[in-house]
Design a protein around this nucleic acid. Structure first.
Lengths: 257, 257
DNA sequence: CGCTTAATTGACTCGTCTCAACAAAAGTGG
DNA sequence: CCACTTTTGTTGAGACGAGTCAATTAAGCG
């Protein structure tokens, strides 16, 4: 199993792939599709899930235009989704951490509208969509969780729209970092110190900023003592101030620029 | 029934509210939740739907923070969804035409994350969420359509993210106008000439632009002969060129700025 | 028919992009 | 294992698109 020989440096969340664990034994149990299912239901769910061999950094999970046959759950590592513009360069639409579902935007047209590739060595569960639809009719908890996850995705994307439409560069980066910190935290790792698996280019593309701007912002935030960063390793010193920069108030409302 | 005495000028899509039509007899049948249901199923669906009295322009359908008990389908008129920033001004997250569902972003947290208010006199169907979850377990076609609509919403929001993150002001407005034109067209009205029910302010907020910029863009697009606009009435003269400005190529890919 | 709100237009400012150079990693092959 | 190339990230200087402020006009609305 040569695939598992990835350096720890190459793992964003520290999650190491342990081969073919069933949903039942998966540590992402309480974040992913299985939330609220009993072990009988989990056994049914397992039947429509295929654990693929891990993807190496840069490998495609699927490409824009591929027919949609499954949705995917990240099990370890991280994945980005993106479109290519006519002149060839990418626009990143999302970064996906373990426990998160990819491909939910493809259900409507039965075709994947974006491409997905691994940001680092990553393993992924493939959930046959037909089976998922079928099972959701039988297992109330599964349907509920699927709808919940899709709803959250909508909410997250709306939040990004507000961010991109209403906040200046600094706020955008602060929001992304706060968001990643929170998600890393939910997965049981320190929200204060983590590894960014994506390049500055990807960050810029996601936030609608030039790479140079992203780089300058990191330098600025570091100078202001909010965080320290070297290369891809980030340490957050003042999470509250970072969140305030990101425009989130106590009540979750956003402040305009 | 004083509510139905709205001037035709006040209706974005020309759809006039006809009172308590059942889903079966609704002209939005093939766009809304009922897609693919037979009349027995439609009768069941009708039982969880309440037709509310029409909203007048500016009336709230729900407010950010309200507990989520239902999702809503626009029946006539149009509705905007938005958040308020801490200093009180709005950020618009969506415009919703007849047949479109509102409140799908609230399922995850069981609380509405945004507010919704009518842009003009509008009628709306209230779909009790608990009933919808229940019924989707029984009616395969309903589940399928609900998932499809949510997936399309995700796809649409991603497209907006790409737009806001990657395109200049002109492209953003062109994209919005093309999009509205297409949706108006799907609803059986002319995609070449329509009424914008939202203010320049709303458009600016939605596109992440200042009102003044929106105004100047309209003037510029008109000067270039792409469209003519007076007040809220828009006539598109060159839909292809507009779509090209919006950055959409034949294959649906986007071009960067 | 005034009053208020919405839309337009102009002048000026500023944030972010672009272009360009350079530095530091990270691969690549002898 | 080291020299070389390529990729990725950082920094600086200048340009420009879109924001802000301010004034004016045009619509709605009571």
């Amino acid at each position: 199993m040569v695939y598992f020989m990835t350096s720890s440096k190459d793992e964003a969340c520290g999650t190491v792939c342990h081969g073919n664990v069933a949903c039942q034994d998966c540590s992402l149990h309480q974040l992913c599709l299985p939330v609220g299912l009993d072990s009988a239901d989990l056994a049914l769910l397992d039947r429509i899930i295929r654990r693929r061999r891990p993807l190496r950094r840069g490998e495609y999970l699927f490409r824009a235009g591929d027919p949609m046959r499954a949705v995917y759950a990240v099990r370890s590592g991280s994945v980005k989704t993106f479109t290519c513009s006519s002149d060839g360069d990418e626009h990143v639409t999302g970064f996906h951490l373990p426990g998160e579902l990819i491909g939910l935007d493809a259900i409507g047209a039965a075709v994947h509208p974006r491409s997905a590739r691994a940001l680092e060595t990553s393993s992924v569960c493939e959930v046959a969509y037909e089976g998922l639809e079928e099972l959701s009719m039988k297992i109330r908890g599964l349907q509920r969780q699927l709808l919940r996850l899709m709803s959250r995705e909508i909410h997250h994307d709306e939040t990004m729209m507000i961010l991109l439409g209403g906040m200046a560069a600094e706020g955008r980066l602060a929001a992304l970092l706060s968001n990643i910190a929170a998600r890393v935290g939910e997965r049981g790792f320190s929200p204060r110190a983590f590894h960014l698996s994506m390049s500055r280019n990807d960050i810029g593309s996601y936030l609608g900023l030039a790479v140079e701007t992203v780089s300058r912002l990191f330098t600025r935030l570091q100078a202001e003592g909010l965080l320290s960063v070297q290369r891809k390793q980030v340490m957050i010193h003042d999470p509250d101030r970072l969140r305030r920069l990101a425009g989130v108030c106590g009540d979750g409302a956003y402040q305009s620029r």
